[in-house]
Amino acid sequence: MSEALRAIQRNALGLGLFAALTAGAIGVTQILTAERIEQQRELATARARAAVLPEPVSLKAGNTQPITLPANGVTGIREGAEAILVTPANAAAILILPVTAPDGYSGRIELILGVRRDGMLTGVRATKHQETPGLGDAIEVAKSDWILHFNGRSLTNPVPEQWGVGSGDTFDALSGATITSRAVVDAVRRGLAFTASHQQRLFTNAGAEAGAEKL
């Protein structure tokens, strides 16, 4: 075997060993950080759930009920996902509904809606997205108040023809992020339509009935 061939083999062995060590280090890092990342996601989701509830309603033990979402065929409403029905003692029930906008500028946008039994939104929050920093990420309440404009809206407020983004529509587009804005508006509208279609199943609860007219 020539010296040149032996040098090539040594280099190949060294590169292979380096690649294996690097892959191993990356794998270990992912394992060590995966749990923490998941904990942070769960914390962000919990904060968003609390944020879509109006004062003085809160997520206290004893007034929440998990609800498995039924088969529906609605884009962005995942069958088997878990919603939460909040039934305060002296207020109307509120459904906390997870919704996905599949058509964001950079992919899926995960949202949480708070919806009263009468179909009025109590709040909307984005929990996960990859939208462009400085543009599409303004759907985060920490970056702008744009998403707060859904508060108090319903399927009939605005009228269906104005549930959109653009000239003559109710919702303004975020500057430089029309696709993101439209994706969120469409997802919220679908969430409201889904809630209206499954109202009886989603809100049938003794506590919900008792407080249905008080909020």
Results as ranks from 00 to 15, higher is better:
194 F>P: 06
110 E>H: 06
199 Q>G: 07
149 H>S: 13
17 L>E: 04
4 A>E: 11
160 P>L: 06
207 G>V: 06
206 A>V: 08
55 E>D: 11
187 A>V: 03
36 R>Y: 03
139 I>V: 05
135 L>Y: 01
94 I>Q: 10
155 L>M: 09
105 Y>N: 06
164 G>M: 11
141 V>H: 01
33 T>L: 11
211 G>Y: 07
157 N>S: 12
72 N>Q: 12
46 A>D: 12
152 G>N: 12
16 G>P: 03
94 I>D: 06
170 T>Y: 15
70 P>Q: 15
111 L>F: 00
111 L>H: 00
31 I>C: 03
80 G>R: 13
190 R>W: 04
39 Q>P: 02
143 K>H: 02
96 I>S: 09
91 A>K: 14
68 T>G: 05
51 A>Y: 03
97 L>C: 07
197 S>P: 02
2 S>V: 02
201 R>V: 13
167 S>W: 05
137 D>V: 02
206 A>Y: 03
121 L>Q: 12
168 G>K: 12
95 L>M: 14
152 G>M: 11
97 L>H: 06
110 E>C: 01
157 N>T: 10
172 D>P: 03
13 L>S: 08
174 L>T: 01
79 E>N: 12
120 M>P: 02
105 Y>E: 11
151 N>I: 10
74 V>E: 15
173 A>M: 08
78 R>L: 11
113 L>P: 03
132 T>G: 00
32 L>H: 07
179 I>P: 04
200 Q>K: 15
70 P>D: 14
97 L>M: 14
148 L>T: 05
164 G>N: 14
124 V>K: 06
147 I>S: 02
161 E>D: 12
147 I>N: 00
75 T>A: 15
78 R>A: 15
164 G>I: 06
33 T>M: 08
39 Q>D: 13
176 G>D: 02
73 G>W: 11
85 L>Q: 13
45 T>C: 03
139 I>Y: 01
179 I>A: 05
40 Q>A: 11
63 N>G: 03
197 S>N: 14
146 W>H: 04
119 G>V: 10
18 F>T: 13
66 P>A: 09
142 A>I: 01
141 V>D: 01
184 V>E: 05
144 S>G: 00
169 D>Y: 12
27 G>D: 10
192 L>V: 07
17 L>T: 12
66 P>K: 14
57 V>E: 10
44 A>Q: 06
46 A>V: 02
189 R>Y: 05
91 A>N: 11
68 T>C: 04
163 W>A: 08
101 A>D: 04
64 T>E: 13
43 L>A: 14
205 N>I: 03
12 A>Y: 05
47 R>D: 01
133 P>F: 00
35 E>F: 04
141 V>T: 07
177 A>D: 00
17 L>K: 08
53 L>C: 06
186 D>I: 04
119 G>M: 14
66 P>C: 09
14 G>L: 11
95 L>H: 09
209 E>N: 13
57 V>R: 06
58 S>V: 11
132 T>V: 02
131 E>H: 00
137 D>E: 01
113 L>S: 04
31 I>V: 13
144 S>K: 00
46 A>N: 14
47 R>Y: 01
171 F>T: 07
45 T>H: 07
68 T>L: 14
42 E>L: 13
64 T>D: 06
78 R>D: 13
